[in-house]
Amino acid sequence: MQRHPLLAALAAVPLLLCAAPAAAAAPADAPPRYAALGDSYAAGVAAGAYDPAAGDCHRSANAYPALWAADHGATGFLAAACNGATTADVRGGQLPKVGADTTVLTLTVGGNDLGFAGAAADCLQPLTTEARCAATLDESGHRLREELPGRLSALYDDVRTAAPRARVVVTGYPHLLRTGTTCLIGTDARRQRFNALTDELDELIRREAEAHGFAFADVRTAFEGHGVCAGAGREWITGIVLPRLWESFHPTPEGQSLGYLPAVTAATGPR
């Protein structure tokens, strides 16, 4: 008697299942396989000790990803963050390098999507007008509310697909500027508005990260009192750096090790 094709196919299912066991998870005590993605704040711009091989990405040995990798004995450390990177740059150029076996992934991105570098130039450098600063911050706010939520959501979806087993930590940005002080960097009103935009950005990043099941590392408390205009010896953010303007308004080595690293370390703790 001829066996029905459907019955034969069903009978083969257990054999197929046995032949393709699921990949084993990494042991709990295995060294982390770490990928660090993002922009200049994750690359370590202004922190010095740049890797010559990184070129214009300006990745620093003093950046929080390199410090975290050293502290945790990470294996297969992927340092992909790059100066000037946007969410699109991370999706197109950095994320494809991430292995599916990654167990920890950190990400700092979003500021360049809003044109933060241009906003700093238009608001914080000498001889810029109130009208120019206001117009630039208005445009940044528009991008934040109308464009960035969708960009972050799409990126975070791709991150989870690329690193399905990873503990993902998304960081925010610090207040770059100390307010309520006498300072030649912008006016106090401009500094307040710039910091308010940073708060709005951080809260958006937090919401999108938590909606995707990621941890959020908030660095604002650690940096409190250490922004530009805090006074000599207390600033963890660079002011205007000449002639290397691209290092302006970025975390110093202290900002990376005392500001970013503790927040990221806390967020990468047990699930």
Results as ranks from 00 to 15, higher is better:
A54P: 10
A54E: 06
A54K: 11
G55W: 07
G55M: 06
D56Y: 12
D56L: 11
C57Q: 13
R59I: 01
R59P: 06
S60M: 06
A61Y: 14
N62K: 15
N62R: 15
A63N: 04
A63V: 00
P65Y: 10
L67R: 09
A69P: 06
A70G: 09
A70T: 04
A70P: 11
D71A: 14
G73D: 09
A74N: 02
A74C: 04
A74R: 09
T75L: 10
T75A: 06
T75H: 14
G76T: 04
G76R: 12
G76V: 06
F77R: 04
F77I: 06
F77W: 09
L78N: 04
A79E: 14
A80I: 13
A81I: 02
C82I: 03
C82E: 03
C82D: 07
A85Q: 00
A85K: 02
A85R: 03
A88T: 08
D89C: 13
V90C: 15
R91M: 11
G92P: 04
G93V: 01
L95E: 07
L95V: 08
P96K: 00
P96E: 07
P96M: 07
K97E: 13
K97N: 15
V98G: 00
V98L: 02
V98D: 00
G99M: 05
D101Y: 01
D101E: 13
D101R: 07
T102D: 04
T102E: 12
T102F: 06
T103N: 03
T103S: 08
L105E: 05
L105Y: 10
L107C: 04
L107W: 07
L107Q: 03
T108L: 05
T108R: 05
T108K: 03
V109S: 08
D113H: 03
D113W: 01
L114V: 10
G115R: 11
G115V: 00
F116H: 07
G118D: 13
G118L: 08
G118F: 10
G118E: 03
A119S: 09
A120T: 14
A121P: 06
D122Q: 12
C123R: 01
C123V: 04
C123N: 04
L124M: 14
Q125P: 05
P126K: 02
T128I: 15
T128R: 13
E130V: 08
E130G: 02
A131Q: 12
A131W: 02
A131D: 15
A131V: 15
A131M: 08
R132P: 09
C133K: 03
C133H: 04
A134S: 12
A134P: 06
A135T: 13
T136D: 10
T136A: 12
T136W: 06
L137E: 05
G141A: 12
G141N: 15
G141Y: 07
H142K: 15
R143A: 12
R143K: 14
L144V: 00
L144P: 01
R145L: 12
R145S: 12
E146L: 01
E147P: 01
P149A: 11
S153R: 14
A154W: 02
L155H: 01
Y156C: 00
D157K: 12
D158M: 06
D158N: 09
V159H: 08
T161I: 15
A162K: 11
A163G: 10
A163Y: 00
